[in-house]
Computed example of a mutant assay.
Amino acid sequence: MHHLKTMQTADCQKFGMGLIDYLENTFEVDLKSILFAENSNIETIRSNATKTLTEAVRKYHTARGNSDWLSTETASNNPGAFEVTSNWFMTEDNALDYADLEGDEIIKQMQYISSNMSKMLESKDYGLASFYMFASGFLATTTGGAIAFIGSVLAGMTEAEAIAAGLSTLKGGAIGTIVILVISMIIFFVFLRPAKALGFVVNNTDKNLIVDDFKSSSGDLFMNTGKMESFMQDKEDPSRVKSPWIQIHGKMPWLIDGKLRTGVFAGFYFAEKRDWALYGTDGAMIFSSTDGNLKFAHEFAVPYSASNGTNIKLLENDYSGNAKKVFSDLRQNQKKRVVVSTDDYELTSSINDTSGQECGIIATIHQK
């Protein structure tokens, strides 16, 4: 087991260092001194790396007059200090493919996404960036971007033009939205800290999902060890000034040329070991639909020395237990891959490997 952990870590480090070198060379920025600062905690590293890369990307595009990226307006999805990651929008076919990913396929897909997102940042305009977005398997980011994408397709634009239109709704927030994901990917792949979990939750249902009171220690996000560094969150209805915040939006259908197409939303989370802690990271979250008709729990574990694992379970709609209780139940029966099927739903949760300190996780729910 120790040999496998060493090999996996070395492969991830090699990929991550290549990503850092690409970003440093392209945007003339020193990330290594920030990422490998010996006496900085992970929150400072993440904050400084995100700020520094964002500024470098803006400077890069300013020097070249690439106006798409340089709006002074902001489009932040973060309502407070908690770092949140926007929803990502994809075809239903891609959502179904994610449910089938297992083992090394999970890490390879996350590497593919991070490579294309890094290249997006270099693109001279949203038109070119749209090709890298599409190559990543996404049509838009944020619920507002998804609505703009659908509207543009219905207006007769090509798919590439519609993706660019969706990016334009982010205005000044576009760079930051992508940089947050890229920095999380770098920290995940490069062995800055042991025991890291990068999760991707795909909501292939028509329900809007929330993790109730997730910022509270008594809410529906429970961390047994480690710390949740970033978590998915987006607007339920971007057309409203005071739209409620949700975790993952329900799927959006549209009709074009007499054919029904469906887009599906997903969100990333990133958890890791606390500085100087003796344990790794593990926890659980309860997703509830805003209409009260769906509830399920997802668990993950990347212990410092024991085996990694995951679990997922449908809950009764009137389930009264909190995330701490459901964690205790699911942790005991976790596996490398769990599939749950009922008359109405199929749920999956998979990790790339039961050994290794970088654990990629794909969790999906599909409404039949």
Rank of each mutant, 00 (worst) to 15 (best):
L128E: 14
I107W: 00
N317C: 06
E122W: 03
P238T: 12
L23M: 10
Y126H: 09
E105D: 14
S118C: 06
T6D: 10
I113A: 06
G137C: 12
G292C: 11
N87Y: 11
F189P: 00
L278R: 05
A165M: 03
S355T: 09
G156Q: 07
L23G: 05
G65S: 08
R331V: 10
G145E: 08
D257M: 14
L154T: 07
I187V: 14
A277C: 02
I187Y: 06
I34R: 00
D257E: 15
K108E: 13
T290R: 03
I147W: 11
M252Q: 12
F222T: 07
K235R: 04
G321M: 07
E236V: 02
S40T: 02
F89M: 05
E358P: 00
D318Q: 02
R274V: 09
Y345Q: 01
I163A: 10
N25Q: 14
T85G: 06
C12V: 01
S288A: 07
D212Q: 14
N78E: 09
A135I: 00
M285I: 06
Q367V: 08
H61R: 01
V153W: 03
L4Y: 13
N208I: 05
S123D: 07
L31I: 05
S239G: 09
Y60L: 08
D329N: 06
R58I: 08
V29C: 13
G16Q: 04
P238A: 15
S216A: 15
A271P: 00
I286T: 02
G263D: 07
